[in-house]
Structures are given as C-alpha cells and as structure tokens.
Amino acid sequence: MPVLTDLLFYAFAGLALLFGLLCVANPFSRNPITSAMFLVLTIVSLAGLFILLHAFFLAAVQVLVYAGAVMVLFLFVIMLLDLRQSEERQIRILTIGTGALAVAAIAGILIRAVIAAKPLASSPGLAGETKALGRLLFTQYLLPFEVMSLLLLVGMVGVILLSKKETE
C-alpha cells in the first residue's frame, strides 16, 4: 500500500520538524527539561522515518541509544545542575536575529542545493536487511567496529576523570 507509507512519511516528517522546533525554540517554556522531552519526541519521529527507509536496525538503535541512554543522561545532568534561575534572563532580540539570519542562510543554501541537484536515476529498492548490515559490520568494517569499542572505553574513563570530585 504505497499510499499509506506516503502519508506516514508526511506525518513523521511534520512531527519531527514540529517537535524539533519546540525543542530549540519553545514559545511557552524555556525549561531545559521541556526541550529534552521534545528532543525525545523528535528522535522517535526520526526513528519512524528510518523505518520508512527500511533501516529497521538503525531505528531500533536510535530509540534505544538516543531516546533511552543519551536522553536519560541529559535529564540526569539537568537535574544535577538545577538550572532554574537562568530561566529569568531576558531573551535578546539581537541574538535571535543574528541566529535566524545565519540559519536562513544555511537553510537556503541547503534547500537550493537539494532542488538544484539532479534526481537519482535508481528507484528505491534496497531493503535494509538487519542481517546484511550485521554481515557488513563484522566483515568489511570489523576494525572500525572494534576501534569504536575502544573509543567508548576511553570516553568512559574520560568521563569518570572529568566528573570526579577534585580532592584538594
């Protein structure tokens, strides 16, 4: 049923953009926790888009790692720091203006580039088989895969060292 998937694309894309907007520029709340919650929703919407692109494994990882682990970390830090007093600060028009200008420039360039680009010749066809992905990860990309585990270890050590209380 091609029509349903088309509708689902528009739905997920719209949700992702809406939640993204609410995450970075929520007119009702500047609480970081609100931003974090909307980021979770954006990520879930993106996972939906991934499924539409037949990247099932990545969609699962996206939800597990991002919406799960990473966002918990964010929330944890937000609560640890207790940042409510910064909410009282005034919004500066200049900051918003310059930010919007820069963003408009980049967005304009990107979209113009997308429109100007020649459409791809091939039709959508590749099924993002999890099995195939796994095979690729453990054959062609074995070394980067293992290096990545090392990177995670190093990151862990670094985090422990950084957030350790200074003993003075």
């Binding site: 091609p2 088309d6 694309f9 528009y10 894309a13 992702a16 953009l17 993204g20 907007l21 995450c23 970075v24 520029a25 500047r30 970081p32 954006t42 888009l49 539409l52 692109l53 940042l83 910064s86 600060r89 900051t95 918003i96 310059t98 930010g99 919007a100 820069a102 963003v103 408009a104 980049i106 967005a107 990107l110 979209i111 997308v114 429109i115 680009a117 459409p119 791809l120 959508p124």
Partner: peptide
C-alpha cells in the same frame, strides 16, 4: 510519493533548527 529530495529537505530543515538552537539558546 516521497523521493530522496523530500528526505533531504526534511533533513536540511532539522539541521537548520538545530543550528538556530546552537546560535540562539544560552543554556
């Protein structure tokens, strides 16, 4: 039917949103 262009446009817009957050938010 959504083609690659649609995905790329969504991606560009999301990217711009993120960029705006980086440039405008102070937290």
């Amino acid at each position: 039917t959504p083609g690659i262009h649609h995905y790329l446009v969504v991606s560009a817009l999301l990217f711009s949103l993120g960029l705006f957050g980086v440039l405008a938010r102070r937290n």
